[in-house]
């Protein structure tokens, strides 16, 4: 079985994240690029599944990490390989700078078609997009079922199953393979790659693809690469919100509870 995990490089949230106010795009030079934590967890869950299948003789599971991101972010795929992915696919092309959601979905769908996955695992959101729509968009383009926002993940030879928290309750869902799923941060903590894994990663295949390499698949999906051929979503303005200033800080002298109550009453918040 072939499982593709869609990993996403994002600006490190521990640093200051900066948006270029002219283009409305992320200023990637302003902060360090890391793998989005949820996609690391997704990768961990899938690698564990592969390890367990190998151990129990349930069959070979090949894990592929895939991303569409600027060339500079390749170190994040090296990390995915060091964690245990067997190979990696990096779609990098300058023509994709500022790609909107539909374009991103089209290109990832083309790369996924080329890879021929039985199961596609994505995160339910990321720290720099939070849309969480990519998995459904890919399912639509690839004509696959999508089980989104799974908190648990159970993969069998011909199906995938999990639970999701929706309005008012917990839902158990299942989809026949091939399928797309997205998983949440309730997936297991990602492992720290051991030195052995880091050295081994050097020899693993890391394929870099441009739009030209995906020509046949893009055509099959009916993608028009000309930016004016179809409607696009664009950023028309971006502004930085003024930083919040600290207010009054007090140390409890035995009356802090009363002080807060008075503060709330003053502001008509109680």
């Amino acid at each position: 079985m072939k499982i593709v995990v869609l990993v996403k490089p994002v600006p490190d949230t521990y640093g200051d994240r900066v948006l270029n106010l002219e283009t409305g795009l992320a200023d990637r030079a302003a902060s360090e690029t890391v793998l989005d934590e949820i996609t690391e967890r997704a990768l961990e869950a899938v690698i564990r599944h592969a390890e367990e299948s190998a151990k129990s003789g349930a069959g070979d599971v090949e894990v592929i990490a895939m991303t569409m991101a600027p060339a500079e972010s390749q170190s994040t795929l090296r990390k995915a390989l060091a964690m245990g992915a067997a190979s990696a696919v990096h779609v990098a092309d300058e023509r994709l700078a500022g790609a909107d959601l539909v374009r991103t979905a089209e290109v990832l769908a083309a790369a996924l078609r080329r890879a021929g996955a039985d199961l596609i695992v994505a995160g339910n959101g990321s720290t720099d997009g939070s849309g969480g729509v990519m998995p459904s968009m890919l399912a639509e383009l690839l004509e696959l079922p999508a089980a989104t926002r799974l908190e648990t993940l159970e993969i069998t030879a011909d199906a995938v199953r999990g639970t999701r928290e929706t309005d008012g309750g917990t839902m158990t869902v299942t989809a026949a393979l091939p399928a797309v799923v997205s998983v949440t941060e309730r997936m297991p903590d990602p492992r720290f790659p051991a030195l052995k894994g880091i050295m081994g990663a050097k020899k693993k295949p890391l394929e870099v693809l441009t739009l030209d390499d995906l020509g046949a698949e893009l055509e099959a999906l009916g993608v028009e690469l000309d930016e004016t051929a179809s409607a696009r979503s664009i950023m028309v303005a971006a502004t930085q919100r003024p930083a919040r200033e600290a207010g009054e800080i007090i140390t409890d002298d035995g009356t802090a509870g009363e002080r807060i109550a008075a503060f709330l009453a003053d502001r008509r918040l109680a």
């Binding site: 948006l19 409305g24 939070s130 696009r232 950023m235 028309v236 971006a238 502004t239 919100r241």
Partner: peptide, 14 residues
Amino acid sequence: VYGGGFEVTSAATY
């Protein structure tokens, strides 16, 4: 976006 640090306006080209 970015935890409320920025406000971004988006639109369709058409």
